[in-house]
């Protein structure tokens, strides 16, 4: 286990994860206070990746629960394997005959069957889903509840129960209590507001897009074959794209993909052709690609298009804003 933020940094670095001081502190606190982390931030900044790195660094097994609309207890907690139960009943019919042989009355037969009930409601027929797996695991685990904002509000309320005392009751088997409290991490892309109650129980971590230097470190770690000079250019361009008013800003994972694409294409420098060919790796909307192309070419093309007097060439994004079509305003 971690004892200081430095150890956290070392650990996460060992898993090829570049963490900010804030992330280190929060992970340390999650370990110490045994509280879940609620991690928010734009898509693709490495929220899920953090969970994996954390699990790797502490030697925990990662159990992942991917949330979606309509997720319910049978998919998150446990389910009886009815088909298997039916099958066994069929196969064991002869044996049941033996058990029931010699019973005089119906009540007696029922009693005998009741004695064997445990066979059918045992762990053998129980299908543990991620939440039950996390609670009953003997080894240390990390439970990752991914994109909690996609699940329904009721599921959130149900989750609250599980997270507060880490016990699950299966009516036929009794209550299962966690022997060791699992580490928990929830991620959210903030598509809807989470309940106050859930937020209260968690440590909150907001991961934003990294700074140029941090992103450069990430790119160097993940795409080591990219020439340093080119890596810097690429990261600076991505950072500039994020300043634009895009439908979907390029994420860190997309930066890495792009860096790898540049390596695969043997790009020597970021010239216009390379850029236009690979921009779709970064931007996934046609409209965004067009906007980005315009913004990138704006400074080099001088006062291209509509001649706006304001703004210098060194701030293309601002000039770009001025270029946006404006409706008549009086």
């Amino acid at each position: 286990m971690f004892n200081s933020t430095d150890e956290v940094r070392e650990g996460l670095n060992g898993q090829q994860y570049v963490a900010s001081d804030e992330i280190n502190t929060v992970v340390l606190l999650a370990e110490k206070l045994q509280k879940p982390i609620l991690c928010e931030g734009p898509a693709g900044v490495g929220k899920t990746e953090l969970a994996k790195a954390w699990a790797g660094a502490t030697g925990r097994r990662l159990i992942r629960l991917q949330c979606y609309e309509g997720l319910d207890e049978t998919k998150a907690l446990y389910e009886w394997e009815y088909a298997k139960q039916m099958l066994y009943t069929q196969l064991l019919r002869d044996k049941l005959h033996d058990v029931l042989a010699g019973s005089q009355t119906l009540a007696q037969a029922a009693d005998r069957i009741a004695q064997e009930e445990d066979v059918f409601f045992s762990e053998r027929f129980l299908l543990p889903r991620p939440l039950l797996q996390a609670v009953t695991a003997g080894d240390p685990v990390l439970l990752l509840i991914d994109e909690i904002d996609r699940a329904d509000a009721e599921f959130e309320a149900f989750l609250l129960e599980v997270l507060s005392d880490f016990q699950v009751s299966v009516p036929e088997l009794g209550t299962k209590k966690a022997t060791s409290i699992p580490a928990v991490m929830l991620t959210s892309n903030n598509t809807r507001e989470l309940s106050e109650a859930l937020k209260r129980r968690c440590l909150y971590l907001f991961i934003d897009y990294p700074s140029v230097e941090a992103e450069l470190r990430i790119v160097k770690l993940r795409a080591p074959d990219l020439a340093p000079q080119l890596a810097r250019q690429a990261v600076e361009l991505v950072q500039r794209l994020r300043q634009l008013d895009l439908k979907k800003s390029p994420s860190v994972s997309e930066t890495i993909d792009w860096a790898r694409a540049l390596v695969a294409l043997n790009a020597a420098q970021l010239d216009r052709a390379t850029l236009e060919n690979t921009l779709t790796v970064l931007l996934k909307h046609e409209q965004d690609v067009q906007r980005a192309k315009r913004a990138i070419s704006a400074p080099s093309a001088g006062s291209g298009g509509t001649g706006t007097a304001a703004g210098g060439a060194e701030t293309p994004d601002i000039e770009y804003r001025n270029l946006r079509p404006r409706r008549r305003s009086e």
Binding site: D21, E22, K199, L203, F206
Partner: peptide
Amino acid sequence: RAVDHVGVMSKHTFRSALHATLIKDA
């Protein structure tokens, strides 16, 4: 409790600890 664990030696860590426990909305 968080401050108990991380101490007040590093201002940065102290700040992150308070931030993680008190601020739940970006």
